[in-house]
């Protein structure tokens, strides 16, 4: 039973990190229909930026986190302005393909700036262990769960209540109508990319704090696909639930069925979901009036 609880906490914390990466992906998809293949690399930049702040600049962790968030937002804006903006109005497939190129560029850039060897930084998440009943779980993993949930909740609220959030969803629904009410599409796309980069950076920081800083973090970004396909490409709630399910599925499979299988089980699930419910658990249905 202890092992099960430990696995559950570990799976959920990984799942919430997936959710943070996935939610950025969802935000970009919602605003512009673009599938961002560079989402994992935004995650990667999150881990390297916090390393840069805390270790290379020697900042206290609070300032390091703040700097990471600011730089990540800047990176998102820069990418939107220089790579995506010139393609507005082109077929959506062009924008999707350019994110694949972007992914390589970002990864190479991280490699050039920080090298390929794995790094670590002093964790800013509380270290030590927490006893729950008879189980012992890492405090850093435990705290990652509520932290991510709060952030995701704030994001959901942003989409329901705020002017830019509603505008983003409006653009996704009907671009011409959105334009007719003075909603500026470039501005909304820019906000979407900044948000995506920031949520990914938060996920990246947590990941870096738990498992260390290395290029392999970007691979975690690949998990975004099973997560969003399961949850629905355009649903934040779906990203959270999808993240939790994939995270748990991975650890349970690894522990109870066979190590190694945990790496492919998310993609098996992806195929199954696509076959029986292609818009995911919470994906947008097509509204038809009768």
């Amino acid at each position: 039973m202890d092992a099960f609880l430990q696995l559950t906490v570990s799976g959920l914390s990984t799942g919430m990190i997936y959710a943070l990466a996935a939610v950025g992906f969802v935000v970009i998809y919602k605003a512009s229909d673009v599938i961002n293949f560079a989402q994992g690399d935004l995650l990667l930049f999150g881990t390297y930026l916090i390393f840069f702040g805390i270790v290379q600049l020697g900042l206290p962790w609070t300032l390091g986190v703040l700097l990471t968030l600011v730089l990540a937002a800047g990176l998102g804006l820069l990418v939107e302005r220089t790579v995506l903006r010139p393609l507005v109005g082109e077929p959506i497939i062009s924008m999707i393909m350019v994110t694949i190129g972007l992914s390589s560029v970002l990864r190479a850039l991280a490699n050039a700036l920080w090298g390929a060897q794995p790094r670590t930084f002093p964790s800013f998440l509380p270290s030590g262990e927490v006893r729950i009943g008879t189980a012992v779980v890492g405090a850093d993993r435990l705290i990652a769960i509520p932290l991510a949930l709060v952030l995701l909740g704030a994001l959901a609220l942003f989409f329901r209540r705020s002017r830019d959030g509603v505008a983003m969803r409006a653009i996704a629904d009907d671009q011409l109508a959105a334009l007719s009410m003075g909603i500026s599409i470039p501005r909304v796309f820019a906000v979407a990319w900044a948000l995506a980069a920031v949520t990914a950076a938060v996920g990246g920081m947590m990941l870096g704090s738990i498992v260390g800083v290395s290029q392999s973090v970007a691979v975690v970004g690949l998990r975004v696909f099973p997560v969003v396909i399961l949850g629905g490409l355009d649903s934040i709630g779906g990203a959270v639930l999808g993240g939790a399910i994939i995270g748990l599925l991975e650890v349970y499979t690894g522990a109870y069925i066979g190590h190694g299988l945990n790496l492919i089980v998310p993609y098996i699930l992806l195929i199954v979901v696509l076959m029986i419910r292609p818009y995911g658990l919470f994906g947008k249905e097509i509204i038809e009036r009768v």
């Binding site: 009907d174 959105a178 509204i287």
Partner: peptide, 18 residues
């Protein structure tokens, strides 16, 4: 051309964007 997936209220908020 209403925003179909937004609520009536949210449609009105979108109208007040500027």
């Amino acid at each position: 051309r209403v925003f179909e997936h937004l609520t009536v209220r949210e449609n009105l908020i979108a109208g007040a964007y500027t």
